[in-house]
Design a protein around this nucleic acid. Structure first.
Length: 805
DNA sequence: CGTTCCCGCCACCCG
DNA sequence: CGGGTGGCGGGAACG
């Protein structure tokens, strides 16, 4: 092992590696090549990461590895032994994912800033014993995440995950600006409409609205300080892979269930703006490419493969398993500045993307720059310090930076922890996060989880303080932003009636969210995640919970619930604070009389207005007005059966109903995941009226069932202390499973388990009661309609709030 | 048979 | 013209 390591180190450090010339073909060179047993071992270890290859595969790998070695020896001895050949080159051994693992194993996730890691393409290709072409594939996607950057021909710089959070933030932002959420919904909706409607007429106006935005050409998203180098040496049209990879990632960051099917991704990435050309081959190619990308993203453990099962069969999809990305926190900046920044990214610290209109200009400039400075054969020498300073300087808020650092640490720690317990299912961490209360019992590895989610994991008392240390950057929360809250007066009996019985779900005690089956006959789609190991792990956990954990949970339920809620509330405050719109925020945070349904709009808070362009502003004000009348929002909520409703994106807004295991009234909250932090004008803010409308359509509003106030609730009245701002914004969800799936808020005590490795995610697309027509009317009703995408309704005491950027 | 996706041809740049 | 890049799609391995 040592030998190998040293070897690697040497090769990596060697500053003078100048294999500018194409390296001799690996096969021709038998000598000391990296394919030593140790390297294999190393690779295996690295590959031991939770997800990806299952044990059997690992075993296979090890076997293969051995075989390979033997084969090699044999070859050396008897030039050509054909017998053993078949055994080895299993296709899987050559998979991009595996290759990527090997590649990643060579470099630290967080390389010390001091040392600048260079990557010599030829070397790597040779050492990993693959053709260059393959390395390019990997590098391209790594580059899209800014984990590497090209310095010169044949040479890249390794940055590891240092830039990851920033990059993801940027990508998320761009994704939002691109209205990806809407696009996704549109596609889903379209296909949902059976597509086989003999769509002689391409689905009405959908296509139109779809293609309308000319945001189409969005190019490579860069990070400040990085763009330079990134663009400098390679000029090739930043076409596919790189950009495609970024877009793909955006889709995850923007969609709420954080599950993206290849099909949808492909469609979006293809057409982007174009109408749909059912170009079969094009689609196929896209899919192929997506697989490539997905494989490396998987190796990075940012995503994992799952399957979405619909009535039409199951489709391959991927679930985001990377860090949650908090809508970028920005320093208090006058809205106007903000705007200008958007236009001139290079100046704005916060902007990572170029405004479409400037792309061309920028490109030409870059071209010139490129031509002038590109020194293909001679790597641009850039001192690490320079590079860093660039980045740091560019980075906006110290808070963010700090948090980023913290986050990194956490990640590293967690990673170590993970490695230590590789035996455990990879989902352990996730599980812990989502099921704080239970976490300790089922799995020991909790340490990591605990660290990251102190508040959730710890008792109430500990909660607030510990939070402060948690990195704000990573918010295990719903991605985005606008939230609606329904206030419910605890003491008051509320009635919520589901439109139809079908919406009533019985909580399954001890069952994880994912496990809940859709009882609703209206459920159109079901998402099923199938994962070998994980599934098993999950099952175990569940069992444990049901048995051991169960009792404990129950006893704690009441207090925890209170706690959780207050926590939640505090979080919202925190977020607000970050937004530094203290004054406005405070106002908005004011508690409202229970019994009212109060949609909170960013506009209403006044903090979003600044980011909106004029049109938006107008909209906002209108909405604001609406908002001002609480009465509109009054909603009788029933507690017993229905706990929460999740309204999915789509104009049609499918519902997501959350049920609390206990029959405590949950506070329904609609969180709008789609828009959020984007300055995108296209994103309208939902108005309370819209919300109500929606709810009515959904059938939530009609009163019918009455439920006595839960004792706990009564006590819970406005428990939260806004003061504890230091609280992290940890959020409740991590387990947010699916979009329309039944969900239980994380803080919900009685929910034992987290969907975690979603074995089964239910995606329900409910038609609006009125049918398509009603839908359209809804959307027509206001722009806000589409804003209301996917949300979760629960019934907290206070507002949960808005996280807009 | 459908899914996954490896392989490597060959078009592009850029000297 | 040579060599690095990296679209792109055939078609093979896999399940």
């Amino acid at each position: 092992k040592q030998a190998t390591t040293s070897h690697l180190v040497l090769t990596e450090i060697q500053p003078d590696c100048q294999p500018l010339t194409t390296p001799p073909k690996p096969k021709e060179i038998l000598p000391a090549d990296p394919w030593t047993p140790t390297s294999n071992l190393k690779m295996l270890i690295s590959a031991a990461s939770p997800e990806i290859r299952s044990r059997e595969q690992r075993r296979e790998l090890s076997n293969n590895a051995n075989v390979v070695l033997q084969a090699k020896h044999c070859l050396q001895e008897h030039l050509s032994g054909d017998e053993y050949e078949k055994t080895q080159p299993s296709r899987k051994d050559k998979s991009l994912g595996l290759l990527c693992h090997k590649f990643l194993a060579r470099y630290p996730d967080y390389p010390s800033t001091a040392e600048y890691n260079y990557i010599c393409l030829d070397e790597v290709a040779e050492e990993l014993n693959v053709e260059r072409r393959r390395i390019y594939d990997i590098l391209n996607v790594l580059e899209s995440l800014h984990m590497v950057s090209r310095l010169a021909k044949n040479r890249y710089a390794w940055h590891g995950r240092h830039n990851l959070s920033k990059t993801l933030q940027a990508l998320k932002k761009v994704g939002e600006e691109n209205k990806y959420t809407q696009q996704i919904q549109m596609i889903k909706k379209r296909e949902y409409e059976h597509e086989f409607d003999l769509d002689g007429e391409r689905n009405k106006g959908m296509a139109r609205s779809f293609g309308s935005n000319e945001n189409s050409e969005m190019s490579f998203v860069e990070l400040p300080g990085m763009e330079f180098r990134a663009a400098s040496v390679n000029s090739r049209k930043d076409k596919s892979l790189r950009v495609m990879s970024q877009k793909f990632v955006m889709l995850f960051l923007v969609s709420t269930p954080q599950i993206v099917s290849l099909e949808v991704a492909a469609k979006i990435l293809i057409g982007e703006d174009k109408l749909e050309d059912l170009d079969k081959s094009k689609f196929k190619t896209k899919i192929r490419r997506l697989y490539d990308i997905a494989n490396v993203l998987s190796s990075l453990e940012l995503i994992k493969k799952v399957h979405v099962t619909e009535e039409r069969g199951r489709k391959p999809a991927f679930k985001w398993t990377g860090p949650e990305v908090l809508p970028s926190i920005q320093e208090p900046i006058p809205s106007k500045e903000q705007c200008s920044k958007n236009l001139f990214p290079s100046r704005g610290k916060q902007n990572f993307t170029r405004h479409p209109s400037l792309i061309k200009l920028v490109k030409s400039i870059e071209n010139d720059r490129r031509k002038i400075q590109s020194a293909p054969t001679s790597p641009v020498k850039i001192s690490a310090s320079t590079y860093l300073s660039l980045n740091s300087a560019a980075f906006p808020s110290e808070i963010a930076q700090l948090s980023a650092i913290t986050k990194h640490k956490l990640e590293e720690q967690s990673k170590k922890a993970k490695e230590m317990k590789m035996k455990l299912s990879g989902s352990a961490l996730e599980c812990g996060l989502s099921l704080p209360e239970i976490a300790p019992e089922p799995e020991p590895p909790r340490t990591t989880a605990a660290m990251q989610q102190p508040a959730l994991t710890q008792p109430v008392s500990a909660c607030a303080p510990s939070h402060g240390s948690v990195s704000p950057v990573i918010l295990p929360h719903t991605p985005s932003g606008v939230s609606y809250t329904i206030y419910l007066h605890p003491s008051q009996a509320h009635t919520v009636t589901t439109y139809s019985p079908s919406f009533m779900f019985q909580p399954l005690p001890g069952a994880n969210v994912t496990g809940i089956k859709s009882i609703n006959s209206q459920v159109l789609n079901k998402i099923t995640t199938e994962e070998g190991d994980n599934q098993i792990a999950t099952d175990d956990v569940t069992k444990t919970l049901t048995t051991t954990g169960r009792p404990t949970i129950k006893s704690e339920t009441a207090s925890q619930q209170c706690f959780k809620r207050s926590q939640t509330l505090q979080e919202s405050h925190l977020i607000k604070r970050y937004r530094r719109d203290e004054e406005n925020l405070d106002t908005s945070l004011t508690f409202f009389p229970s019994g009212y349904l109060i949609p909170l709009t960013q506009c209403a808070h006044g903090n979003k207005a600044g980011f909106l362009n004029e049109e938006k502003a107008g909209t906002c004000s209108l909405q604001h007005t609406t908002y001002s009348s609480p009465v509109a929002g009054v909603i009788p909520v029933t507690a017993s059966e229905l706990k929460a409703v999740n309204i999915p994106a789509f104009h049609i807004t499918p519902l997501n109903i959350m049920l609390s295991p206990t029959s405590i009234a949950a506070a329904p909250v609609l969180s709008n995941s789609c828009l959020n932090s984007s300055n995108n004008s296209s994103a309208p803010n939902p108005s309370s009226s819209v919300l109500n409308f929606t709810l009515q359509h959904i059938g939530l509003i009609p009163a019918g069932v009455q439920v006595p106030a839960h004792p706990v609730l009564q006590h819970m009245v406005v428990p939260s202390q806004p003061e504890n701002v230091s609280h992290s914004s940890e959020n409740l969800q991590e387990g947010k499973v699916s979009k329309n799936a039944l969900q239980l808020p994380q803080w919900w005590p009685s929910v034992p388990k987290e969907p975690q490795e979603p074995q089964t995610v239910t995606e329900n697309f409910f038609r609006t009661p009125g049918g398509p027509n009603s839908v359209s009317s809804l959307s027509a009703n206001s722009d806000g309609a589409d804003r209301i995408s996917q949300g979760t309704l629960y019934i907290p005491q206070r507002k949960l709030e808005v996280s807009e950027d």
